Simulated scan of single mutants.
Amino acid sequence: MDNLLRPFLGRQITRERRLFNYRLSRARLVVECAFGILSSQWRMFRRVITTSPEVTELCVKAACVLHNFLRRKTIGRTSRTPVE
């Protein structure tokens, strides 16, 4: 596919290609960690999503927005002392 990045293969690759492979690997880890966090909170990410790519994209975006909203609410609540 034209829109997927693959690491360069081989042992004797240039410094620039090794740097590209490293950065690609780090980016993949960030995405995997993000989906790990989302799947721990949202059940829909624990199985195959059987909708169209457009609907799947909207679901992922909505889950990210909800996750950020809930984190802000939780962080704001834990930093204050309870009012009696």
Results as ranks from 00 to 15, higher is better:
Gln41Lys: 15
Gly76Tyr: 06
Thr56Cys: 11
Arg28Gln: 01
Arg18Asp: 12
Phe20Ile: 06
Pro82Val: 03
Arg46Lys: 12
Glu57Asn: 11
Leu70Met: 13
Arg17Cys: 00
Arg11Leu: 11
Ser40Glu: 05
Lys61Gly: 01
Trp42Arg: 02
Phe35Trp: 07
Val48Gln: 12
Lys61Met: 05
Thr51Ala: 13
Thr14Ile: 03
Val48Phe: 06
Lys73Met: 09
Thr14Lys: 03
Ile13Ala: 01
Asn3Asp: 10
Phe8Pro: 04
Ser25Cys: 07
Leu9Asn: 08
Gln41Pro: 09
Phe20Ala: 10
Arg43Ile: 10
Leu19Thr: 15
Met1Gly: 05
Leu24Ser: 00
Val65Ser: 02
Ser39Lys: 04
Val60Trp: 00
Asn21Trp: 01
Arg71Asp: 11
Glu32Trp: 06
Val83Pro: 05
Arg15Gly: 09
Arg71Val: 12
Thr14Asp: 07
Gln41Cys: 12
Asn3Glu: 11
Ala27Lys: 13
Leu5Ile: 08
Leu24Lys: 00
Val55Ser: 09
Val48Asn: 13
Cys59Pro: 03
Thr51Val: 15
Arg77His: 15
Arg72Gly: 08
Arg18Pro: 07
Leu70Val: 14
Ile75Thr: 15
Arg43Cys: 13
Pro53Leu: 05
Ile13Leu: 04
Leu58Ala: 13
Met44Tyr: 06
Asn21Ala: 00
Glu16Val: 03
Phe35Ala: 04
Leu4Cys: 08
Trp42Gln: 06
Ser25Gln: 10
Phe69Met: 01
Cys33Lys: 14
Leu19Asn: 15
Arg15Cys: 09
Lys73Ala: 10
Leu5Asn: 10
Ile37Asn: 03
Pro82Tyr: 07
Ser40Gly: 01
Glu32Ile: 06
Arg23Trp: 00
Lys61Arg: 13
Thr74Leu: 09
Arg80Lys: 08
Leu9Gly: 06
Trp42Thr: 04
Arg17Val: 00
Val55Gly: 07
Arg46Leu: 09
Ile13Trp: 02
Leu29Ala: 07
His67Phe: 09
Phe8Trp: 03
Phe8Lys: 04
Phe69Ile: 04
Arg26Val: 08
Trp42Ser: 02
Phe35Ser: 02
Glu57Tyr: 10
Met1Asp: 05
Leu19Trp: 14
Arg11His: 15
Ile13Ser: 00
Arg72Gln: 14
His67Gln: 13
Ala34Cys: 08
Ala62Ser: 15
Pro7Val: 07
Leu24His: 00
Arg46Ala: 09
Phe35Cys: 04
Phe8Asn: 05
Thr50Ser: 10
Thr56Glu: 11
Leu4Tyr: 12
Gln12Ser: 14
Thr56Pro: 05
Gly10Ala: 04
Glu32Ala: 10
